[in-house]
Design a protein around this nucleic acid. Sequence first.
DNA 1: CGTTTTATGGTGCGATCGAACCATAACACC
DNA 2: GGTGTTATGGTTCGATCGCACCATAAAACG
Lengths: 221, 221
Amino acid sequence: MPRQVDHDRRRRQIAEAVWRLATRGGLEDVTLRQVAAEAGVSARLLQYYFGTRDQLLLGALEILNDDAEQRARERLAMLGEAPGLHAIVRGVLLELLPLDEERSNRHLVYVAYFVRFLADPALAKVARDAPRALEDLVAGLIAQGQELGQVPRGIDVAAEAAFLVTGADGMQATVLLGQRTPEEAVALIDHQLARIFTATRTAHREPPGPNDRHRPHDPPE
Amino acid sequence: MPRQVDHDRRRRQIAEAVWRLATRGGLEDVTLRQVAAEAGVSARLLQYYFGTRDQLLLGALEILNDDAEQRARERLAMLGEAPGLHAIVRGVLLELLPLDEERSNRHLVYVAYFVRFLADPALAKVARDAPRALEDLVAGLIAQGQELGQVPRGIDVAAEAAFLVTGADGMQATVLLGQRTPEEAVALIDHQLARIFTATRTAHREPPGPNDRHRPHDPPE
DNA sequence: CGTTTTATGGTGCGATCGAACCATAACACC
DNA sequence: GGTGTTATGGTTCGATCGCACCATAAAACG
């Protein structure tokens, strides 16, 4: 194997170009030539690393998904060693909100792909798993909260988890369109969480704390 | 004026072709030739009625918006003469769900346009007004409910209204992707509404389908 | 009846698209 | 030092794109 080059790195470099173009002008702007120019490589390279355009779109989405999962894991790990269920659920939900450029772009890319999800089975498979897993995760955490007495027994765990995830998901659009500030979105999530987690043991209930956990992220123009 | 022809009707006919193509393959499939073929007219007609492609996209969106507003009004009027606040709020929220092909397609069209909303000011203007108005409407209705004793005083009207609308909005994606059945989505909405409207005067609480209200949604695959 | 305005069809042009093809530099291995 | 595989650049082709242009039927108006 001559001229050994980091394949994954190249693929990521190209995938990022796809994302940038998709967030800017939708999939119709993701043309082979534009991607090549945006990534600073020749158009031939795209064929070499991804093949056809459809495969490029699929590959770029897979890389995006892997990225998202890893980032979420990192951010959850950053909560500290004994975060408390309330804080964990909050962290999961906030991961869905466009609180920084990375998460905004991620959602924009998903939106750009969305219509294709319905038609292209290969793409659909990639997109279908994530949200369901999130709901189950949140439901599990809330159920744990019930065990520990942090959440009232009366509430319907599955229904609340589903609505929380769905609500966070729905808020992405409004925030991106500038109809709601990120702070308002976080406040709405916290309002619902406060209703569900009526008693937290490890006192993580504060919205933007003194330390800059989820600080109000840079100027939204 | 010779050969008088219903302009609005023609424009609608063309706009519908745009919607169909957009829901099927996104905006990149909305090419002048394809729209012409789908609408059964010559490509020249599109230019005649809409002008450039961008103007066609904008025009088709405006017609879609007008449609949506009128349909929502019709459906709300169909609730009867003294619907009760709970039923009205429910009707408004259900209007956002993809419960039939028309509403599904409408949301798909919005999604197809979404990325453009962020870049194109003319499009953004069209899209920005509707959701905020919906929130205010729901908030007003819930506040009325408080006055009438149907809604507990303790709840934060604005926050709940915002989360309801946002949740309904977020549910569109999951339903369209087949991750949740429409019945489950309705059940989740009803679950939240039941929490807010603790006492309804005119007993309009049942959903339309069989009374399987918020059963714990099982894995559909 | 002729004229003018409105409505429609067809055709052509330059640009760009996706993708195949051809060439060759770079390096590992024998 | 050949040799073959890997990685990269460039070019080309048929199709399609948006759109401008040209022609003309149809009908209201004088």
